[in-house]
Nucleic acid binder design. Structure first.
Length: 575
RNA sequence: GCGCCGAUAGUGUAGUGGUUAUCACUAGGCGUUGCCAACGCCUAAACCCGGGUUCGAGUCCCGGUCGGCGCACCA
């Protein structure tokens, strides 16, 4: 248990800074709010978290990872809606200098339709409203847009505007036609991306929780709009976890546990795809060391959900310091993104779905005699053909209206054909299921939950109880004494472990107890000690970080045993 | 962005406007040490940044940066 009254956040961040997990960025010039550096151990731990994420999405789901630039041209974000919608209309109170959301001021002052007003109009409209902070009547103010995207220019001069991406998702959307081809033209398929995203937060606080540059891991799964049953749903059908539905939130009720199958059947979750990734996310977060009792899934209320989303859930992790923190978002974004990019770019973003049986469709077609009518109408011919195609002719011919001019086309100059077509399929715009992970928040949650202080031999001990699969250093190797050849054997053991791909740290400085404590503090789960008995019978001890117990094992089995312990296929208690 | 508070070795700290800035832990070296922060000797290491007041500023004043809290913000 953690002793004393110190703030957990302070303790965790202090440890993280001291031992090389997280540092303020460019400290020698003064740090910048909203940016952090991952030190040696932090970067390693984060990489392990990312690789577990890859294991779930790339290896197990089969959604390949792509890598797009962090800067994209303006058109991308015009289409996605970020240029227009990722900004807030703001104003500054001339009295108390407070920055305010202009639409909130309008709402407070009973001004309707603020969302659609131009800035000048809105400024005029709210002049009589009161400041939300100091309650003075605002008077003349300027309304301006504050866009959360970082803007830059591409190339010399400033010919082309670029933005740092506020999410990785757009990369998967703009590459849609290439991805569709890669997956050989059939649904469902998915693509994922792990990388940096940027949001120019107005006032970032809370250390690694709200960053201006953060690591985003997103999957975009393209599915048929009418087929939202996940083909592998049985994997999680009986998976039970706590859900805080919109209805429960409205009634102020706590989260209730459901199996995914029941949740979908009772329509609490929109479809199997969303449910599947809720469960997968739960499993992954538990795997990296989040305690299930500190994990819940909260459904977005209708009012907070993006207008295009059919359903949206947040995985929230409970922090002793920050309360419930949104860490993962899982949304059914429907066809919003692909439709928008298709519209703006002019590239169709559809999938051709072939019918089981071709459909026979009867169609009446009017085929004009082009050679005669073309000569007759010349430049107007095209308009005449188009109008004629939709006309309803009689036996006397067709009377059409082209640009206000009444034209009679005699029956011998066209032919009405009733044709039977075979339609083999249709083009549909896929829907997108999007699980979106904030890797930095996951890392913070892992650190906070791993942090512990206990009493060992009457002395307090700081220990990071990281699950072995995310611990940066996986095993430490100590010679009991720094002589008599024990150091040589220990170095050999270290090398053997490193050859197996394990991050093993050799340490022979100072008392053995001090070396154990040092490793405890950075979360190293296991320590191997070479003692005098090693020289007699070729055995070493493995010491478990959490229980501080030791078992003796043959030196030949050491790398195999540590590998099993680290990847979770063996437990220390059963050695 | 506003208001309040804070910032001294890696960490935690002491420091009436006046010596070479205190102490402990940590870290490094040597010795010692037969399993959980032991011990001895030695070493390294700091006044957030920029102005100002002053003969003299870690100390007082102003501005900035970062951090904490409250407000506001958080597609």
């Amino acid at each position: 248990m953690i002793q004393g009254s110190g703030d957990i956040y302070e303790k965790v961040m202090d440890l993280a800074k001291r031992r090389g997990f997280i540092w303020p960025t460019s400290e020698c010039y003064g740090a910048v709010a909203g940016f952090i550096d991952y030190g040696p151990l932090g970067a390693m731990m984060k990489r392990r978290v990312e690789n577990i994420w890859r294991d779930f999405y790339v290896i197990q789901e089969g959604y390949y990872e792509i890598e797009c630039p962090t800067i994209a041209q303006e058109a991308v974000f015009v289409a996605s809606g970020h240029v227009k919608g990722f900004s807030d209309k703001m104003c500054q109170c001339p009295h108390c200098k407070e920055f305010l959301r202009a639409d909130h001021v309008a709402e407070g002052g009973g001004v309707a339709g603020a969302a659609t007003m131009a800035n000048e109009m809105l400024a005029a409209a709210i002049a009589t409203c009161k400041c939300l902070a100091c309650e003075e009547v605002l008077g003349k103010v300027e309304v301006f847009n504050f866009n959360l995207m970082f803007k830059t220019s591409i190339g010399p001069g400033s010919q082309r505007t670029g933005y740092l991406r506020p999410e990785t998702a757009q990369g998967m959307f703009v590459d849609f036609t290439r991805l569709l081809r890669f997956y050989r033209d059939h649904l469902p398929f998915g693509a994922v991306q792990i990388g940096k995203s940027y949001r120019n937060e107005i006032s970032p606080r809370q250390g690694m929780i709200r960053l201006r540059e953060f690591t985003h891991a997103e999957a975009e799964i393209f599915v048929h709009p009418d087929q939202k049953d996940h083909p592998k749903f049985s994997r999680y059908a009986d998976y039970i976890m706590p859900l805080l539905t919109a209805t429960q939130q409205e009634k102020n009720e706590p989260a209730v546990s459901f199996s995914m199958q029941d949740a979908v059947a009772q329509r609490l979750i929109a479809n199997e795809y969303v449910a599947y990734y809720l469960a997968l996310t739960h499993e992954m977060l538990v795997k990296i060391g989040i305690r299930p009792d500190r994990l819940r899934f909260r459904q977005h209320l209708c009012t907070e959900r993006a207008h295009y989303a059919a359903d949206c859930w947040d995985a929230e992790v409970y922090s002793d310091r920050f309360g419930w923190v949104e860490t993962v978002g899982i949304a059914d974004r429907t066809d919003y993104d692909l439709a928008a990019h298709a519209r703006h770019s002019g590239t169709p973003m559809t999938v051709f779905i072939q019918y089981g049986e071709p459909k026979k469709v009867q169609r009446r077609r009017i085929v004009p005699n082009m050679s005669v009518l073309g000569k007759q109408f010349r430049t107007k011919a095209k308009a005449v053909f188009e109008t004629l195609a939709t006309a309803t002719p009689t036996v006397d011919g067709a009377d059409i209206d082209v640009d206000g001019e009444k034209i009679h086309i005699p029956p011998e100059l066209f032919e009405v054909r009733n044709e039977i077509f075979e339609v083999r399929g249709e083009d549909i715009v896929p829907h997108v299921i999007e699980p979106s992970y904030g890797i930095d928040r996951m890392c913070y949650a892992v650190l906070e939950q791993a942090y512990d202080e206990d009493i060992a031999d009457g002395e307090s001990r700081t220990v990071l109880r990281l699950t072995p699969c995310v611990a940066p250093v996986q095993v430490a190797v100590f010679p009991l004494m720094n002589r008599d050849g024990l150091d040589t054997i220990a170095m050999e053991v270290t090398r053997t472990l490193q050859k197996k791909g394990l991050l093993a740290e050799y340490d022979d400085s100072g008392a053995i107890g001090r070396r154990y404590r040092r490793q405890d503090e950075i979360g190293t789960p296991f320590a191997v000690t070479i003692d005098y008995q090693t020289k007699d019978d070729r055995t070493v001890t493995i010491r478990d970080r959490d229980s501080m117990k030791q078992v003796r094992i043959a030196i030949d089995r050491i790398s195999e045993t540590i590998c099993d312990l680290v990847n979770g296929s063996a437990q220390f208690s059963s050695l």
